[in-house]
């Protein structure tokens, strides 16, 4: 195995899996470990840099993998890539709009996130069904 640089998302994903298997103690251990393995956040960044990084993922990261996953017929990976690409597009567009309109973009708007795929929704009430992954509205949580 190559050296892994991103341990926390693997561990929080396993925490969710353990919880679904009704192993609540193990789920909590995975969460605690995820915290312990978290890296300290980086310095010197701005929205423009982050938008550029998302754009690069959309331009090179996703398409190459989509082609490969299609070639070997891995439906699971293709599903991840389809959702991920759409969610990344939304993330990038939100940043872009915020850079253009500033604080006005979110004023008076609630933000909801689909816990299944990461879709971000601005509005008064979460959608009945997630437009990206079709999860029901109860899978949405509000961002404070």
């Amino acid at each position: 195995m190559n050296e892994l640089k991103a341990i926390p998302p693997i561990l929080t994903n396993l925490a969710k899996a353990a919880k679904k298997q009704q192993n609540t103690d193990e789920s909590q251990v995975f969460l605690t470990l995820a915290d312990l393995f978290s890296k300290t956040a980086k310095r010197d960044t701005n929205l423009e840099t982050i938008e550029g990084s998302l754009q690069e993922k959309l331009k090179t990261g996703y398409p190459v993998l989509q082609e490969q996953a299609a070639a070997i017929g891995d439906q699971g990976v293709l599903r991840t890539l389809t959702w991920g690409k759409k969610v990344t597009t939304i993330q990038k567009s939100l940043i872009h709009r915020h850079r253009k309109t500033g604080e006005a973009l979110l004023s008076g708007q609630d933000i909801y996130i689909c816990e299944a795929c990461g879709f971000i929704f601005l509005g008064e009430k979460s959608p009945d069904i997630c437009p990206i992954c079709k999860a029901p509205s109860k899978r949405f949580s509000k961002v404070n």
């Binding site: 991103a6 998302p9 693997i10 929080t12 994903n13 969710k16 929205l47 982050i50 991840t80 959702w83 991920g84 969610v87 990344t88 939304i90 993330q91 939100l94 940043i95 915020h98 500033g102 604080e103 006005a104 973009l105 979110l106 004023s107 933000i111 996130i113 689909c114 816990e115 299944a116 795929c117 990461g118 879709f119 971000i120 961002v143 404070n144």
Partner: peptide
């Protein structure tokens, strides 16, 4: 507003990474 946007993106990016 920027703080809220950052919190939303942070959570959304984590879900994408987990997937």
């Amino acid at each position: 507003g920027e703080q809220r946007l950052a919190r939303a993106l942070e959570k959304s990016l984590r879900i994408v990474a987990e997937d």
